[in-house]
Design a protein around this nucleic acid. Structure first.
Length: 471
DNA sequence: GCATGATCATGC
DNA sequence: GCATGATCATGC
């Protein structure tokens, strides 16, 4: 059967693929797609291959279009409230063969052989539609910019090293910057053998982090990538140094400076010391965050690597007064998600950058920074607290009682996991005030209400001290 | 001093 | 009006 493109000619494949833009699979393949149930992961890619490109999926190690050296990937977009498009998820690439990878170098690796050049098809995901009715928004080939490739090479080496150290079972997406090792399998328990340990390791695939895919989207759509600052000015710097080293270089001139000195250096005369994001604003200034805005405008490399930045005050005796808060969680969302696709699991799959301001002679100075991602061993505890929280929402018994304090004020007591219940993670309020609520999936047992004051998960202060600051 | 509920300033 | 990145304040 003749194909509607030339298998030997990369450009003809790309040109043919681009005809998909603005269409759905149903439209692009006219009446050739049989009636079927188009549910399930991977089904979109299979349908695209079979009914648009008209070929059967080929061997694992070669790119889909082997002669042209082009790997076909289709991946969903989501639309934000401001109508911008973002990647709905990470882009999952080929499975990591733990046994083979330790004998490969980057240039000969299965990752590089398969993914050096990718033909990307981005479609708009809409939960209420059949997959063949998703609108295809962007189609183009992608090859990695040379500066990014240096980061990806380091990421690949780190993944390989961990496997070579017999720690494939401890791999985490937070280990690396752009290229992650994400779990992939029929279910959460899919495992495979690793070469230097008897412990079965979760099956994982190479993946591009969601933040990185967002930059691919911006690049393909030919949109300015936002007001990003940039850490890595040239590819030469990327070849010489890791991201960690570049970040340390950035911070080094300011170590030992007090908050007031930093404010003077960066002309932050309009920030209010009473504002609770005072130290985070100073951190933003150190990292050249343009206009010192929110995380969406963060520096490009942090954005691509989805790094979570936290500014922490440390007291003179090395204690940390306050636990670390995150976004308030939506009860309905938490109720409906499972651990494996939960926001909390996603959060601790990420890499963190802690910036420590330490008190000395009554003032805080920038003492040090630390990259961190949650060790394998602490994840179960986070999961336990998350499950406990979910159970309480599910039970409907959240409200415990009211305590009257000074000035006739009251406090609401609840049954969520407390600080004393865990050395790692707990739940506390996070809203404008007690009247600031999120809706509940089921009616609260005592109050008979369908909403409850906003809460969030917190990383315990002593955990941050012992496991991050002092380590 | 620690645990825990409450709340603030900012910026879009 | 609301999400964010935090710190404040009270009771024991």
């Amino acid at each position: 059967m003749s194909l509607p493109y030339n298998l030997n000619d990369k450009q003809s494949i790309i040109d043919y693929a681009k005809l998909l833009k603005g269409k759905t699979l149903r439209e692009a393949c006219s009446n050739e797609i049989p009636n079927d149930n188009y549910a399930g992961k991977g089904k979109y890619g299979q349908t695209l291959e079979k009914f648009y490109f008209k070929y059967e999926p080929n061997s694992e190690s070669e790119p889909d279009f082997a002669i042209a050296g082009l790997e076909l990937k289709s991946t969903p977009l989501k639309q934000l409230k401001n109508n911008d498009y973002r990647s709905k998820e990470r882009l999952v690439l080929n499975i990591i063969n733990y046994i083979d990878v330790v004998n490969q170098n980057f240039e000969t690796s299965s990752f590089w052989k398969k993914n050096a050049n990718i033909l990307l098809v981005f479609y708009l995901h809409q939960a209420d539609l059949d997959i063949i009715d998703y609108l295809i928004k962007l189609v183009d080939e992608w090859s990695f910019p040379i500066t990014d490739l240096e980061i990806i090479r380091n990421d690949w080496e780190l993944i390989k090293t961990k496997i070579a150290d017999g720690k494939a079972h401890e791999l985490s997406e937070g280990d690396t910057f752009y290229l992650g090792a994400c779990t992939k399998g029929a279910n959460a328990n899919s495992t495979r053998k690793q070469p230097f340990s008897d412990t079965p390791a979760k099956q994982r695939a190479y993946s591009l982090k969601q933040g990185y895919v967002n930059h691919i989207i911006a690049s393909i759509a030919n949109e300015p990538t936002g007001n990003y600052g940039k850490l890595i000015p040239t590819v030469e710097i990327a070849r010489e140094k890791t991201i960690e080293e570049i970040v340390f270089d950035k911070v080094r001139p300011f170590l030992g400076k007090t908050d007031k000195e930093l404010i003077e250096i960066f002309n932050l005369d309009n920030i209010n010391p009473k504002s609770k994001n005072y130290y985070s604003k100073i951190t933003d200034a150190i990292f050249d965050v343009p206009k010192y805005k929110n995380i969406d405008n963060y520096i490009e490399e942090f954005n691509k690597a989805e790094i979570v930045v936290k500014s922490i005050r440390v007291e003179e005796d090395s204690s940390i007064d306050q636990s670390i808060s995150f976004n308030a969680f939506e009860y309905i969302k938490l109720f409906n998600e499972s651990w494996i696709n939960s926001d909390v699991k996603e959060l601790f799959d990420k890499k963190f950058l802690f910036v420590f301001y330490r008190k000395r002679d009554h003032v805080y100075y920038l003492e040090k920074i630390k990259f961190w991602n949650m060790p394998y061993s602490d994840r179960n505890e986070v999961r336990r607290v998350w499950l406990e929280t979910k159970k309480i929402i599910y039970s409907g018994k959240i409200f415990k009682g009211i305590q009257t304090i000074k000035n006739g004020k009251t406090r609401n007591l609840n049954f969520f996991p407390k600080m004393k219940d865990s050395n790692v993670f707990h739940v506390r309020p996070h809203g404008s005030n007690a009247l600031d609520t999120y809706p509940l999936p089921i009616q609260e047992f005592t109050t008979k209400k369908f909403s409850y004051s906003k809460q969030c998960f917190w990383l315990k202060n002593n955990y941050v001290r012992d496991e991050i600051y002092l380590k």
